[in-house]
Design a protein around this nucleic acid. Structure first.
Lengths: 228, 228
DNA sequence: CATTTATGACTGACTAGTCAGTCATAGTCA
DNA sequence: TGACTATGACTGACTAGTCAGTCATAAATG
C-alpha cells in the first residue's frame, strides 16, 4: 500500500547514482551525490531518534534538525513517517545480510567456526547501534508487520538456516552429540539475543560478560573445552 | 517523585476496604468496592492498550472507553499517563513475584524441578498477556528506567538467583556436569525468553514448539533424556 | 533562464490533562 | 424508619499545546 510511492522515490535515488561513471566526471557535488548524502544523513539521524524514543514519540522536527536538513526535505526522500521507518530498517539491515551471505567457507572445526562467528556477532552487535536496532524491531515489530516480516525473511530465517547447516555439519563430524539440536537452532543463538537485550536494559545493574557466557554455552553444546 | 500522590490515592482506596468488616456490612456496592473495581477495570484496559500500541501511541480516551469510565476518572486513580504506566507494570507483576516466592520445596531430581518450573512458565507466559508484558518492558524499558529497575529488582534478579541455586544443587548432586553454568543462569532461561519474543513476532511465519525446544535444551544441560 | 531541489512557516487534526457541575451513596436526625 | 443533608466519586466539555504533513517561496544548478 505505501509501497508504491516509497519504492518510486528509492528507485529514483538509486537510478541517479550510476550516472557518476559515464558522462558526469564532476564527482564530489553532483546532484545525485548530494542527494544520496542527505538521504544517508536523514537515515542516520532517524535511526538515532527512533532508537532513543521509539516510533510514536519521535518527532520529524528532531530528525530534520539532527540531520541538518529542513523538515520538508525529509518528504523529498520518504513518503511519510511510517514508510520512512520501514525503509530505514531495510536500509540498515541490508548490509548485515550481505555480510551473512559472504560467510567464510566451512574450514576448521565447527566449534571454531561457530565461536568465530558468534564472537564477531557479539562484538559488532552488542552495545552498538545495531543491537539497539534489534531491540527496536522487537519493540515495534507487532505494530509494523512489514518490518517484522522483512526482518524475519532477510535475517532470522537465513540465520536459522545457516545455524542449522552448521549444527548438522557438527553432528556429521561427531562434534555435536545431541541430534535434536538441529531442530532448534534458536538454542544456539538464544544466549546472544539475551545478551543484546540484557545489555540495553540491565547492564547498569549487573553487567554481563557476553563473550564468557557464550564460551560456557558452547561448552554445553560441544562438550567441555579442550585444554588450550 | 511521582510516588507521593500516586501512593496517596492507593492508600486511600485501600484504607476504605477494612471498614467493610466493622460498621458497614453493605458489601457488594460500597463506594470503596466500586472504586477498587473501577481501578481494576482501568488497569486491565490500560494493559490491553499499552500492549497493543505501546506507551506513546496509546490514547487515554481509548483506555477510558475500554474501561467503561470517563477520562477524568483515570486521574482520580493515577497522577498522569506516565505514572499510570509504571504503576500498571507493578500491579501486574506483583502477583507473579508472589508466585515465585511460593516456589515448591526442592524435592525430586533437579531436572524434574526445572522442567516443571519451566513448563509452567511457558504455559503461563508464552502467548498470554504476560508474555506481551515482557515484550512491552523490553520495548519501553530504556525510556522508563523506573520500570526497568523495578522489573530487574523484583523479577530478573530473583529469577536469576533462583536458577543459580537450582543449578548449584544440580552440580552438587552430579546431575549437571558443567560447573561454569552456575555463573550464567541466563543460559538456562534464554530459550524461554526467545520463545516469548518469537511467539509475538514470528509465530505467523514459523510457529515454534516451545515445550519441545525446552526439552532439547534441558537435554543439553542434564545430558540425554532417560528413555521414558 | 528554466528546472530541480530545499526551506520553514503554516495548518489542522489530535490528545494530555483540567475542573465546574452532577448525582448516587453515606451519614444524621426526628 | 423515612426524610433531609453532606460527601466525594464521577463525568465530559474544554484548554493549551503538540506535531505530521503541505506548499509558497527561495536557492542552487546546468
Amino acid at each position: 500500500m505505501t509501497e508504491k510511492s516509497t519504492k518510486a522515490v528509492a528507485a529514483k535515488t538509486a537510478a541517479h547514482k550510476p550516472e557518476a561513471g559515464a558522462e558526469a566526471a564532476a564527482p564530489a557535488s553532483s546532484r545525485a551525490m548530494r542527494a544520496a548524502k542527505r538521504r544517508d544523513a536523514i537515515v542516520e539521524a532517524a535511526m538515532e531518534e527512533f532508537i532513543a524514543r521509539g516510533f510514536a514519540a519521535t518527532r520529524l522536527d528532531d530528525i530534520a534538525k539532527r540531520a541538518g536538513v529542513a523538515k520538508g526535505t525529509i518528504y523529498l526522500h520518504f513518503k511519510d513517517k511510517e514508510s520512512m521507518f520501514e525503509e530505514l530498517v531495510r536500509t540498515v539491515i541490508v548490509p548485515v545480510v550481505a555480510k551473512l551471505n559472504a560467510l567464510p567457507p566451512p574450514t576448521g572445526s565447527v566449534r571454531d567456526l561457530v565461536e568465530a562467528f558468534a564472537g564477531n556477532f557479539l562484538k559488532e552487535v552488542i552495545g552498538t547501534r545495531r543491537g539497539d536496532l534489534v531491540r527496536l524491531i522487537v519493540a515495534e515489530g507487532p505494530r509494523f508487520p512489514a518490518v517484522a516480516d522483512f526482518y524475519y525473511r532477510e535475517v532470522v530465517s537465513r540465520g536459522v538456516a545457516g545455524m542449522r547447516a552448521l549444527i548438522e555439519l557438527g553432528i556429521a563430524r561427531g562434534e555435536i552429540r545431541d541430534k535434536d539440536l538441529a531442530r532448534y537452532p534458536q538454542i544456539l543463538v538464544a544466549p546472544a539475543m539475551i545478551a543484546v537485550i540484557w545489555q540495553s536494559l540491565f547492564a547498569r545493574h549487573a553487567p554481563l560478560d557476553a563473550q564468557d557466557m557464550l564460551r560456557v554455552h558452547l561448552d554445553l553444546i560441544f562438550g567441555e573445552r579442550r585444554t588450550t
